[in-house]
């Protein structure tokens, strides 16, 4: 069906063929606006600011271990070992925290109708990936350049990138679920940051999961983030013990959670609109 409008523009079968272009416009405009904002306030480098947190955690754990004069649990550099654990974990934590915002009720009303919630989710996810990647590159790069840790350059860069993408997807899926849960049970907004940050210690930033006692090891293996951490460490340590690394587990967990999250979002949309 072709229709001519007085403005001279013509559409074949409606404006749908312009949909891709409209999508691109929305995403690019959002990317540049959200990059400079945090909680609706202007804050240049707002996303990079969240990169400070993993650095602080790496520094404190590193200091503590040095003070206790422990040897690194694996490899020769303590900072590298802790860094390879904390960065993927924080990618997960921050993504699962920040992705609650695009779907919250107030934010949804403060948009042009052309911006859909999943545009915001995509943009926030990309910004998180970029900022965490930048901070991680700075951290590992400076370990290599200034501290002479040769292993800080991953021997298998593809594995490093793939594992981080999987962890990011896990964070996105968790974030979508959280956003819906937080609208049903508002206290979840207070509980989840605490749970997420506490889970840091169960995801293996300062121990090798495969060296845990065999009877408690399998409880740790239920945490999908620990598999992501192990996956990421394989990029740096070619002979990292892999008894507790199950790629299919974290992939399946992510897929199920993502499916469940999208389903939950679509299924409760009406209910939540009526509730608010």
């Amino acid at each position: 069906m072709t229709q001519t409008y007085p403005s001279g523009r013509m559409y074949a079968a409606g404006p749908r063929r312009l949909a891709l272009r409209a999508q691109f416009n929305v995403l690019s405009a959002l990317l540049f606006r959200e990059a400079g904002m945090r909680h609706g306030q202007n804050f240049t480098l707002g996303y990079l600011a969240s990169g400070v947190e993993p650095l602080v955690i790496v520094a404190t754990i590193g200091l503590l271990f040095s003070a206790l004069s422990r040897t690194p649990p694996y490899g020769s550099s303590l900072m590298l070992f802790i860094g390879t654990g904390v960065f993927p974990i924080y990618l997960f934590i921050h993504t699962s925290l920040r992705l609650r915002q695009p779907l919250n009720a107030v934010a949804q009303r403060q948009r042009f109708p052309i911006e859909r919630p999943f545009d915001h989710i995509l943009v926030h996810a990309v910004l998180h990936l970029l900022s965490s990647a930048l901070v991680a590159v700075l951290f590992f790069g400076s370990l290599y350049l200034f501290f002479g840790v040769n292993a800080a350059i991953p021997s298998d860069p593809v594995t490093a990138v793939v594992s981080l993408l999987v962890v990011l997807m896990l964070g996105i899926a968790t974030g979508i679920c959280n956003s819906v849960i937080a609208r049903i049970i508002p206290a979840w907004d207070l509980l989840w940051p605490a749970i997420a940050r506490a889970s840091l210690h169960f995801s293996g930033p300062y121990f090798v999961a495969a060296y845990l006692p065999p009877d408690s090891r399998w409880y740790f293996a239920l945490n999908p983030v620990i598999h992501g951490v192990n996956w990421f460490r394989h990029a740096f340590y070619p002979f990292y013990p892999n008894q507790l690394t199950d790629h299919s587990y974290i992939l399946a967990f992510t897929a199920v959670l993502l499916f469940f999250g999208v389903l939950l979002e679509a299924g409760t949309r009406r209910y939540l609109e009526e509730k608010d």
Partner: peptide, 18 residues
């Protein structure tokens, strides 16, 4: 089958800090 506007005078999408 046309580009429809937002309701005229729609100001909820403005970011007040910008």
């Amino acid at each position: 089958l046309a580009h429809l506007s937002f309701p005229a005078g729609y100001n909820r999408a403005f970011r007040l800090a910008n």
